[in-house]
Computed example of a mutant assay.
Amino acid sequence: MTAAYTLYAKPGFAATTIERLCSEARISNRAFYECFGGREELLQALHERCVDESLAVVAKAVQDAPATLDGRVTAGIRAYIEFATADWRRARIMHVEVRRSGDVLALSRQRAIGSFAKLVEEASADFPLAGGLNRRLVALGAIGALQELLIEWLLADDQPEIDELVEVAVHIFNRALGPT
């Protein structure tokens, strides 16, 4: 898992062979196949671990936040961005390699997005949404914006500061979830 965490982040999932994984982990191919059915299964396990850990961090932050929309949004977004960016490999697996892997993580990615959307819906449920908009769709749109901000952080030559990412994401979420 440790070798995959680094190799799947860079050079990336597509460029990482089982032989390279096993060499880096100092295990035999046989030992690898005793644990995983293939490199796709390993990527899914890694992705799901990152998602589960980040969901727990965000849920705790939202739970401990002031009971206002801005308080919950700010706490949840700051917790997510700080967790994702604390280790660039985690951010890369969750936001870049998950897309580059194609169908390998399609279901895992949809489950993750669904779980985060549910968390956003629950955290904002006490607050009216403008114009009778579908809260789930608004949550999905805001999550998509946050993902793009993190991809920018990962790939930009002039990387934005974490505080700037938080500020922009909070603005987007508050505008999307708040009354107009």
Rank of each mutant, 00 (worst) to 15 (best):
A79Y: 05
F83M: 01
C35Y: 11
C50S: 06
F83S: 10
A56C: 06
C50L: 08
A79Q: 03
H95P: 01
A31P: 07
A56F: 02
Q63R: 09
V62K: 08
E82I: 06
A45D: 11
R89V: 04
P66Q: 07
R72G: 11
F32L: 09
P66G: 06
M94F: 06
H95M: 03
T68R: 09
S54Q: 13
S54C: 14
T85K: 07
Y33I: 09
V96F: 04
D52I: 04
E48K: 12
A84F: 07
D52M: 05
G76E: 05
E34V: 11
A79E: 04
E48R: 15
A86P: 02
A61H: 03
G71R: 04
H95C: 05
S54W: 05
G37I: 00
A67H: 11
L69T: 01
E41K: 06
I77W: 09
Y80F: 14
E82L: 12
T85R: 08
I81V: 15
A31D: 07
D52P: 02
C50F: 07
L46Q: 15
D87E: 13
D64M: 10
Q44Y: 03
G38W: 02
C50G: 02
D87N: 14
H95I: 01
V98Y: 05
A56Q: 13
F36N: 04
R49I: 04
P66I: 00
Y80W: 15
N29T: 14
T74H: 04
L42Q: 14
D70P: 01
R78L: 00
C35Q: 15
R39S: 11
E82K: 13
C50A: 11
A59S: 12
Y33K: 02
A91S: 14
V51I: 15
V58R: 05
G102D: 12
I77H: 03
A67P: 15
Y80L: 11
I93N: 10
H47A: 13
A86G: 15
A91D: 13
L46F: 01
